[in-house]
């Protein structure tokens, strides 16, 4: 039986939804599942980890793992993979996954695939599907190694609410610290904000929102809806929004139920981050803007006029 080790995605002590998505897929293809959870003060998560669909939980819980550094994180993953004898090692789509997966692959001499959207296992032969060239094409890749380390694209696999696992905790020993790459501090500019990866609704602003007043206007709508707040690169480059807000090829990949693009033209690098959304609404004053080619609903108009009306109309519905 194929053995799939999923690396738990934990943020601020909370297990993220992607872990269950990956475990659901693993169970759906009939694999034996385990999860590796790496961090500090996370032992209390073991029940959550089991409920997400894992039958073994490898937990590395150490104060030194409080702040992320890729080297020690990778050695914990390698330890778990060895103990479990994992065939496949899956990371959810995150900066952590992107940084750690290639390291793990190099350490265990396995192939590494980034951004996979599908996987087939046929008599031991693994084939994966993934987008390339800013999502303009898809590639099918045949894996020639026994093991595969992969980062799964956000939204690629769906969580099955029906799955469950069983609690069977294996403690991993604390890794050696990386003395040559020392983390000094983490500056968080997102505390208290809704995580873009979790939000049911994401609203992003582009150059069309112009300035702080425009941003505040759209933020009002996001607050009404409890939506995550994102951005195109143009607004990040202009210094108006933090880099961690950027949606797109270099930023976050999001796949919410509803994505609203406000004054965003729809450059391919932006589209690469949001076309997995279920429904897309675009507001743009240019009827030819490429964003309309991917939008389910398009409003051609001045967002400074449209957004206040949107807020009013939504309030009417939501009471």
């Amino acid at each position: 039986m194929t053995k799939i080790l999923v690396i738990a995605d934990i943020k601020d002590g909370v297990l993220k939804g992607s872990t269950k998505e990956l475990l659901s897929k693993a169970k759906a293809i009939g694999a034996e599942t385990a999860v590796a959870a790496i961090g500090s003060n996370i032992e209390s998560l073991s029940a959550d980890l089991a409920n997400a669909g894992s039958d073994t939980q490898y937990i590395a819980d150490d104060a030194d793992l409080e702040l992320f550094t890729a080297g020690p994180f990778a050695s914990c993953v390698v330890d778990a993979a060895k103990l479990f004898e994992a065939d496949l090692i899956w990371f959810g789509f995150s900066e952590t996954g992107k940084a750690v997966a290639p390291r793990v692959a190099a350490k265990i001499d396995a192939a590494c695939a980034s951004d996979i959207t599908d996987i087939e296992i046929d008599g031991g032969q693994i084939t994966i599907t993934r987008p390339a060239i800013a999502n303009k094409v898809m590639q099918k890749i045949k894996i020639n190694t026994k093991q595969l380390v992969a980062v799964v694209r956000a939204g690629a696999f769906e969580a099955d609410p029906g799955i469950s696992g069983s609690e069977n905790v294996v403690k991993l020993s604390a890794p050696e610290p990386d003395l040559k790459a020392v983390i000094k501090e983490v500056v968080s500019d997102a505390s208290g904000e809704i995580d873009l990866g979790d939000a049911d609704i994401v609203i992003s602003v582009g150059r069309g929102t112009k300035d702080q007043a425009g941003i505040d206007l759209v933020k009002g709508l996001a607050d009404d809806l409890g939506a995550g707040f994102g951005s195109s690169r143009a607004m990040v480059d202009a210094g108006l929004l933090a880099q961690n807000k950027q949606v797109g090829q270099t930023g976050k990949i999001v796949a919410p139920n509803l994505y609203m693009a406000m004054g965003i033209s729809g450059a391919i690098q932006h589209l690469a981050g949001m076309t997995g959304s279920k429904t897309i609404l675009a507001v743009n004053k240019d009827p030819e803007a490429p964003i309309f080619n991917v939008a389910d609903y398009g409003i051609v108009g001045d967002l400074f006029e449209v957004v206040p009306i949107l807020r009013e109309e939504i309030k009417k519905i939501k009471g």
Partner: peptide
């Protein structure tokens, strides 16, 4: 090689949906 690209496929592109032009209040509602 550890992996080999065997095939390229077209991306599933989204279809353009409904686009509304005209009176802002009306189309937004």
């Amino acid at each position: 090689p550890q992996s080999e690209i065997t095939e390229f496929l077209k991306s599933e592109t989204r279809q353009a949906g409904q686009k509304f032009e005209g009176d802002a209040a009306e189309i937004t509602a």
